[in-house]
Simulated scan of single mutants.
Amino acid sequence: MSIIWLPRSSRVRAIKSNHTECVLFDLDGTFADTAQDLHYALNLQLERHGREPVSFQRLRPSVSHGSRAMLQVGFGIDPEHADFSALQKEFLDLYLQNIALQTQPFEGMLELLDDLESQAIRWGIVTNKPARLTDPLMQRLGLQQRASAIISGDTTAYAKPHPEPILQACRESDASPERTLYIGDAQRDIEAGRNAGTRTLIAMFGYLGDTDKPETWQADGQIDHPVQILDWL
């Protein structure tokens, strides 16, 4: 397995090997492969409204951008549309009812967590997903009690790319931002990590689309598999 090395951000000072205190993950498309259950929920909703289903390939790149992006794919509407709020609530309710039918941590993630814990390195989740979805999902995965912090999109007054959610996770994990590594698959993830002063990695196995340009996001590096995170500790 190869690692793509990119220039380190001038905002983050170099950290000696094995001095990482905490590893934080975005949830959808980085920590867990949630796309199939979200796809299922959206197509259930489309069927209710007499619309044609969308393909998994079409929806997958939108998953990391949240319900707004997925409703745009399914219904062709944006938040200014009169029906948006009702459709968003219906979609999220359907997803909650089917939240862990097929969702699992990405291949290699559980082994990575075992390795981190064996080194006394804390780990946590920082997502823009609302807590009413994040918490039951982590419970269903059996991982909620192992995480040092689980920060949802409504845990603080801000969501990513604002740095506060990551800073809150660092506080709860008793870790300094400069000794924390944040991994995500969307530009706002990398911006949030950089704004918070952490090192950042792009999860290239996540839900990136054809229009994404991760080489411009100024992350510290890119990974193709969770196990490659070990090379950045």
Rank of each mutant, 00 (worst) to 15 (best):
M1G: 14
M1Q: 08
R8G: 13
S9R: 10
R11G: 13
R11W: 08
V12C: 10
A14F: 10
K16H: 13
S17C: 09
N18P: 07
H19M: 12
T20F: 07
V23R: 04
L24V: 08
F25L: 09
L27Q: 06
D28G: 03
A32D: 06
A32S: 11
D33Y: 06
T34P: 09
T34M: 07
D37M: 08
H39D: 03
Y40H: 15
A41K: 05
L42A: 03
L42T: 05
L46I: 10
R48Y: 11
R48D: 15
P53Y: 06
P53C: 09
P53H: 01
V54D: 00
R58F: 05
R58L: 15
L59N: 00
P61F: 01
P61T: 07
S62W: 00
H65A: 07
A69L: 00
M70E: 02
V73I: 14
G74D: 01
G74W: 00
D78G: 15
D83K: 10
D83S: 15
A86L: 11
L87H: 08
Q97L: 12
A100C: 14
A100G: 09
Q102W: 11
T103I: 07
P105G: 08
E107N: 11
M109D: 08
Q119I: 02
Q119T: 07
I121Q: 01
I125E: 05
N128T: 11
P130Q: 07
A131K: 06
T134D: 02
T134V: 06
P136L: 03
P136V: 05
R140K: 15
R146Q: 13
A149G: 06
D154I: 01
D154F: 01
D154N: 10
T155G: 07
T155K: 00
Y158N: 09
A159H: 04
H162Y: 11
P163E: 08
L167H: 03
Q168M: 11
A169E: 03
A169K: 00
C170I: 07
E172Y: 10
S173Q: 05
S173M: 01
D174Q: 14
D174C: 13
E178T: 11
E178Y: 10
I183D: 00
G184K: 02
G184A: 03
G184F: 02
G184W: 03
Q187G: 08
D189L: 10
E191Y: 03
A192M: 04
A196E: 09
R199W: 15
T200A: 11
L201C: 09
A203V: 09
M204C: 12
G206E: 04
G209V: 00
P214T: 06
W217S: 07
D220T: 03
G221Y: 06
Q222G: 11
Q222N: 06
H225L: 02
V227H: 14
I229Y: 03
L233H: 05
